[in-house]
Deep mutational scan, measured.
Amino acid sequence: MQAFVKTLTGKTITLEVEPSDTIENVKAKIQDKEGIPPDQQRLIFAGKQLEDGRTLSDYNIQKESTLHLVLR
């Protein structure tokens, strides 16, 4: 499924993900596309910070959801 990641600069990245993907996995995909190390990434969805060990389905993130990427 497709999900979108919006950065603070307003850029939107499109990712191909599965509901079973972990947040860690998603961060690795963002690193592949953008070169941002996962340890600098914080992903926010519905106002919550997403934890590495959880999956997209844990957070009820469905296709075409938009996550927000904040860098630390």
Rank of each mutant, 00 (worst) to 15 (best):
K29Y: 07
L71K: 07
H68D: 08
K29T: 03
I23C: 02
S20I: 07
D39M: 09
F4S: 04
E16H: 11
R54Y: 13
K48Y: 10
M1F: 15
T22P: 05
G53R: 09
V5M: 02
E18Y: 15
K29A: 06
E34H: 09
M1Q: 04
D32I: 13
P19M: 10
T7N: 05
R72T: 14
G53Q: 11
L50E: 01
Q2E: 07
E51F: 07
A46K: 14
T22G: 03
F45D: 01
P38T: 15
I44D: 05
P19R: 07
F4L: 07
I13G: 00
G35Y: 03
K63W: 10
V5C: 03
D21R: 01
K27H: 02
R42M: 15
I44K: 05
F4A: 04
R54E: 05
L71Y: 09
T12K: 07
R72N: 13
G47P: 01
Y59V: 03
A3V: 15
I36Q: 02
D52M: 05
Y59E: 02
K29E: 03
D39T: 10
Q40K: 11
A46E: 14
S57E: 12
G35M: 05
L71D: 07
K33D: 03
S57A: 13
L8V: 14
P38M: 15
Q62N: 11
T9W: 14
P37G: 05
L8R: 13
L69A: 01
L56H: 00
S65P: 07
Q49A: 12
D32N: 11
V26N: 00
I30A: 01
D32F: 11
D58P: 00
G47H: 05
D52F: 03
L67C: 01
Q31H: 14
T66L: 11
A46L: 12
P37E: 08
T22C: 03
I36W: 14
L50H: 00
P38E: 07
K27C: 01
Q62H: 11
K11W: 09
G47V: 02
A3S: 04
S65M: 11
L56I: 09
K6A: 07
K27Q: 02
Y59I: 04
Q49H: 12
A46G: 12
A46Q: 15
A28Q: 14
T14R: 10
F4T: 07
I61N: 02
E24P: 02
R42N: 13
Q62W: 11
V26M: 06
I23N: 01
P19Q: 06
D21V: 03
E64M: 10
T14E: 10
K27T: 02
Q40R: 12
T9D: 14
K27W: 03
K6P: 02
G47T: 04
D39W: 14
T22M: 07
Y59A: 02
I44L: 13
I23G: 02
K63T: 14
K11Y: 12
E51N: 07
V70H: 11
L71N: 07
N25T: 13
E16T: 13
R72P: 13
K27I: 03
R54H: 13
L69Q: 02
S20T: 13
Q40L: 13
K48N: 10
T12R: 07
G35P: 02
I23H: 01
Q31G: 06
T12N: 05
T66N: 05
A28Y: 13
G35I: 02
Q41G: 03
T9P: 04
G35R: 06
I44E: 11
D21P: 01
P37I: 05
G53L: 08
L50Y: 01
L50W: 02
D39Y: 12
G10K: 03
E64P: 04
Q2M: 14
G53A: 10
I30G: 00
Q49M: 12
G53V: 06
Q62V: 14
M1N: 03
T55V: 07
S20L: 09
K48D: 07
F45A: 03
